[in-house]
């Protein structure tokens, strides 16, 4: 895996989130102004699909389920969020959006055990 061209900047709406399949790896692109970030599709909190429940505004991403928020510039947590975003590297070449995909980035979710199994 390596740099992959995903789409044109014009394919992404301002403050939009859009999910792509990159050789079997699901990736969400978020656009603010003329910048693009590439993140895994699930919220790090409880696996909510961000392409549906996420809201982008002024470079802030909010998962509308439980209001976890992140600064898209850095991926750092804001508000109620307790985990940062994982991010793929992105570069713009002219109008083309390229993402560096080496392997799928995934969050670790807590899984509790049964008390008696």
């Amino acid at each position: 895996m390596s740099w992959k061209r995903i789409c044109s900047l014009g394919d992404l709406q301002q403050d939009g989130l859009r999910q792509f399949d990159v050789d079997g790896i699901p990736i969400v692109l978020a656009r603010f102004d003329d910048e693009v970030r590439a993140i895994p599709p699930a919220c790090p909190h409880m696996e909510e699909p961000l392409a549906q429940s996420g809201l982008c505004s002024g470079g802030m991403l909010t998962c509308t389920k439980h209001l976890w928020q992140w600064d898209l510039r850095t991926g750092e947590e804001r508000g109620d969020a307790e985990k940062p975003l994982l991010m793929y590297d992105v570069k713009l070449e002219g109008d083309d959006v390229h993402v560096f995909v080496e392997h799928e980035l995934e969050y670790e979710y807590e899984e509790e055990d049964d008390d008696d199994d």
């Binding site: 909190h45 409880m46 696996e47 909510e48 699909p49 389920k65 199994d117």
Partner: peptide, 17 residues
């Protein structure tokens, strides 16, 4: 959220265990 049972009333969620 995905992979959870959710009570629609106040959104408490439970895992499959």
């Amino acid at each position: 959220n995905p992979k959870h049972m959710t009570c629609m009333f106040h959104a408490w969620q439970f895992d499959m265990k």
